[in-house]
Amino acid sequence: MVKQITIISGKGGTGKTTITSSFAALADNAVIADCDVDAADMHLILQPDTFETHDFYGLKLAHINKDLCTGCDTCVLNCRFDAILESHIVDPYRCEGCGVCEYVCPETAIVMKEKKAGEYYCSHTRFGPLVHAKLGIGEEASGKLVSNVRQRASEIAESSGKGLIIIDGPPGTGCSVIAAMTGTDLVLVVTEPTVSGIHDLDRVLQVARHFRIPVAVCINKCDLNPEMSQLIFDHCAENGVNVVGRIPYNRMVIDAMLEGKTIVENPDNELSGEIGSMWSVLLSMLGDNNG
């Protein structure tokens, strides 16, 4: 049975991708899935060699045939998303692809057309297979693209005998986060000791609880505000959440990023040990020692 771990944060910029890429380096039998599909960064560290590209089709988009349109406004009146302008032009950013306009148009002047909304890729990296994606600008359906990435990662794990999928999730609590975490075996929340970090941690912990997914927490840049770190630690303890790592701020995180390396590829630093022991704890939480 392939295990899955999703790394999220609520707040952006807490260090999800930095930590996830280190896990990718530490795991020796894993598929990596970058599910932060509208601001994917993992490829900058893993430098993928892509061997498979898939088009992603999200929701359909309404097209109005000007020759058939009589300007009766039936579509305008029935569109709940204000996506059809008075000039009978469809605003592609507002259209949600529901097809109501196509249904109500008495002239059959409207057709719903498939629209390419992004791509997803399968690649080789120095740490194993990576499935990653690029969502088109302003597209809906980021959750659906996340699901496609996860589906492909599962197929690769099955076919190549990998025991684990490591999922780098997006920030927030909405559709793409829900799509990245539902059905996984463990969620790791990477937070930071700031008022926003703790607020956003609390919200994603509620999301994890809602979907009944086991959760662990890592406090990154923990020495930035030690009192706040302790507050997060106590808050987690009260809620029965395991704090599996406390990583101090270290400038080599950015140095490693500039070199396109993970932190643990330079074992000669204080963070590698901390991340390594966190990874061991997570693996034992996953009940899987061959990841």
């Binding site: 952006g12 599909v37 597209e139």
Partner: peptide, 14 residues
């Protein structure tokens, strides 16, 4: 605005 480039960003900045 929220982060990213998907629909919530468009709704915020359009």
């Amino acid at each position: 605005s929220p982060p990213g480039t998907a629909c919530p960003v468009i709704a915020s900045v359009a």
